[in-house]
């Protein structure tokens, strides 16, 4: 699987990680080797095999439609790096 530095940069954008050039280079090498290793799965024919996304053989449980939480905006923002009143504050979103 060819993995070049541009591919690493593309993935870093998706992952919202600013990587320095040295990190790009190192990750290109690391991920290349790891992908080479995990590529061994291709040896297996899994065309008739169902995927496992959960190991628990149940259906999802429910909660009843009752209001049981909320009403504490102070605690909502208590760890916020920047806030205004009870709002979280982020650099202006430009769309």
């Amino acid at each position: 699987m060819p993995l070049d530095e541009n591919e690493i940069r593309r993935v870093a954008v998706l992952a919202r990680l600013h990587l320095g050039e040295d990190e790009v280079a190192r990750l290109t090498g690391d991920l290349g080797r790891i992908l080479g290793f995990v590529g061994k799965l291709a040896e297996l024919d899994t065309s008739d095999i169902e995927p496992t996304s959960h190991v628990v053989a149940m259906s999802t449980p429910y909660r009843e439609d009752e209001v049981t939480t909320g009403g504490d905006p102070d605690s909502a923002i208590t760890n916020a790096p920047r806030r205004d009143g009870h709002y979280f504050v982020v650099p202006r979103i430009i769309e």
């Binding site: 591919e7 990750l27 991920l31 297996l44 995927p51």
Partner: peptide, 27 residues
Amino acid sequence: RRIMLGTYVLSAGYYDAYYSKAMRVRT
């Protein structure tokens, strides 16, 4: 490293070769 690897294996064009494959081998 793991965020990058995980993002890569889920990203467009690679999901089937990696993530979907791995879920089947998990079976």
